[in-house]
Amino acid sequence: MQNNNKQGVLLVNLGTPDAPTAPAVKAFLGQFLHDKRVVDLTRWLWCPILHGVILPIRSGKVAKLYQSVWMEEGSPLMAYSKAQKAKLEAATDLPVELGMTYGNPSIKSGITALLERGVKEVIVLPLYPQYSGTTTAAVSDALLKALKTFSVVPAYRFVQHYHQHPQYIKALADSVRRSWEKNGQGDYLLCSYHGIPQRFADNGDVYPQHCENTTALLREELGLSQDQIGMSYQSRFGREEWLKPYTDKTLEQLPTKGIKKLDIIAPAFSSDCLETLEEISEECKDIFVESGGESFNYIPCLNDDDGHIELMAQLVVTK
């Protein structure tokens, strides 16, 4: 007999190009950078810049970066997302599907797949630990847009954030400890979060407070002093001021303070992707070493780690 209240989970992440090619990257970036949650400039100003300058110039360059990290299963984000889906389904015995805010599979296709599996209530889990209008709210927008196309709208529950969830902090801390056991503990642990324009925070986005809370809780869990851990923001885009301190500038300064052996982690990313595997692991390493650093150790994202799957299970299973 079918459970009329059957629940299912929609795991949502930012998304990824379908292939590491300029046309695929152009299509993905076009959708991503058209979202007013991401770039809030007036369309008459932004669209000519986007289509006339940014996409033609950046698509080929970004495609080459994707080629350097592409895996057999697709992009790293997609490969790890599929692994997360399979493990969460096994751990909870709930139907789980993927939906990306941009690109494929879409949020609509994810919901459709859940409904076809008999789901009556969709638990939407955006894999953004820290809330931001640029990410979490963008998922909500895409969700509501997709739901408009269904004649019968399923019930749904939306997980807003989990930046201070005990299991999230534990999973992060465990990943750091495993790295220390394998590579030795560095002089300093830098938490690098994806940045947003400072103007967004000034207008009320709670993202920086969530990042600060995560860092403070991780410090407590690891038993580190204030001098052993810090945070910064990466991946800024355009000319306006973004959240500070900037990761690249921080990496330039740390060796001058006697920090030669660095551990770096990206707590805002639930899956390794271009921003972690290329920007942090390669570009940031070069900056640190060229500035006088001697050892740079990137601690991978939680990906499909068992502790991460346990967190997801706790977030979606109601007791």
Rank of each mutant, 00 (worst) to 15 (best):
C211Q: 03
D202K: 15
L88T: 03
L98G: 06
V39K: 04
V53G: 09
L127E: 00
V206K: 07
G8E: 04
F296R: 00
T112Y: 01
I259K: 09
G52R: 13
L114Q: 06
N203P: 00
P197L: 08
N297H: 15
E294D: 04
V289P: 02
V9Y: 01
E290Y: 13
A90F: 10
K182G: 07
L274H: 08
K87W: 03
S235D: 01
Y102G: 04
A63H: 11
G238S: 00
V25A: 14
F200S: 11
Y128H: 05
A171D: 00
A19P: 09
K108A: 15
Y162V: 03
N203A: 11
L55A: 12
G8Y: 05
A268F: 07
P23Q: 06
K6M: 12
D202I: 13
D93C: 05
R117S: 05
I49G: 12
H34T: 08
K120N: 10
G292Y: 11
K257M: 15
L251W: 09
D263T: 15
F32E: 07
I49A: 13
D174I: 06
K148M: 06
R157N: 11
T247L: 02
A266L: 11
R178T: 13
P76R: 00
L172N: 00
L224E: 12
L274P: 03
I264R: 05
H163M: 08
S232A: 14
Q31W: 12
A173P: 15
D286V: 02
K285E: 12
S235N: 05
L77H: 05
Q314F: 04
H308K: 09
L217Q: 11
S270W: 02
N13L: 07
P245I: 04
C47H: 14
A91V: 01
I280R: 02
K61Y: 15
E290F: 10
C47Y: 14
D202A: 14
Y298C: 09
T247I: 06
T247W: 05
